[in-house]
Design a protein around this nucleic acid. Structure first.
Length: 277
DNA sequence: CTAAAATCCTGGTGGC
DNA sequence: TGCCACCAGGATTTTA
């Protein structure tokens, strides 16, 4: 389940190999990988192939959990990996990976392969990236993510804090693993209402978001159930550092109380009933 | 406004 | 050993 730290790690790997390359051709192994447009028809495989061939990769950036390629023709090629998606850079002679849905043939004997066991991930080719990523909330690791702005948004929210952390319009890039870990690091109970957090709690949450995400990036992300891989197919290391996620019944690393699990918004929610108030 | 449920998917798991 | 129901969850859409 690639979240911000995993996507950041993947993008850094992609940049190292793909900037400046031309997309010579595309093979679409499963047409459903192409995202549907708003309401009506989704672009066809033929349309996408004709449009993308010959365009050069100028830049690759992360926005939330999206991966955005800026192409020389002015288009943006955008990926969302959802649960099990992988973007893999391979030599074209390398054995094909499992569950590959789309292959980008590059001008230097490399391939970019989009693999996705569960078929939830999608590819977009658009002339304006904002049409896809424009509704996302602030980037929590950007310089312009300020405590005062964060506090003001929280004050206007009456819902529970954990589903709010997962809302991409509120903050971009936090998923279920890190929402659990962030709330533990901040000592805040997942059922707390956002507008009841005291100023000191808001500040603790603000710093926990950045600290937890930065540490996970330093460890190249979390590989759980073997799902996430970086651009070379390698695992992350942060699963060794998880404090509460999928640790129901195991002792809290701070106080020893067994970690509790509830379902909240349909998601597994893990916390220490003693440390998180 | 919040919140829950349904939707898309398939490998792994637990029950019988 | 085999079959099957069910679970996991990111984001969107629908329903209450």
């Amino acid at each position: 389940m690639p979240e911000l730290p995993e996507v950041e790690t993947i993008v850094n790997g992609l940049r190292a190999s793909l900037i400046g390359r031309e997309i010579a051709d595309v093979t679409i192994c499963w047409e459903g990988v192409i995202a549907k447009g708003r309401g009506h028809s989704s672009p066809s495989a033929d349309w996408l192939r004709q449009r993308i061939r010959g365009q050069r990769i100028l830049d690759i950036k992360r926005r939330g959990k999206y991966i955005v390629f800026a192409l020389s023709g002015g288009d943006s090629l955008i990926f969302h990996l959802k649960m099990t998606g992988r973007l893999l850079v391979r030599l074209s002679t390398a054995e094909m990976d499992r569950y590959v849905r789309m292959v980008f043939h590059l001008d230097d004997s490399q391939q970019l392969r989009f693999a996705d066991m569960r078929k939830l991930g999608r590819v977009y080719l658009v002339d304006d990236a904002e049409a896809i990523v424009g509704t996302l909330g602030p980037e929590p690791l950007a310089d312009d993510f300020k405590l005062e702005d964060f506090a003001q948004i929280l004050r206007r929210r009456s819902g529970r804090i954990k589903p709010l952390l997962l809302n991409q319009r509120f903050i971009a890039g936090v998923g279920n693993i890190y929402a659990n870990e962030i709330l533990f690091a901040a000592g805040i109970h997942p059922l707390r209402k956002a507008d009841t957090l005291a100023p000191a709690e808001v500040e603790a949450l603000y710093h926990a978001i950045q600290r937890v995400l930065r540490q996970a990036i330093a460890q190249r992300g979390t590989t759980f159930d073997g799902a996430y891989r970086d651009a070379w197919g390698e695992r992350g290391q942060h699963q060794e550092s998880l404090k509460v996620f999928q640790r129901e019944g195991k002792p809290c690393p701070r106080c020893g109380t067994p970690i509790a699990r509830i379902t909240l918004g349909g998601r597994g929610t893990y916390f220490c009933p003693r440390c998180q108030k």
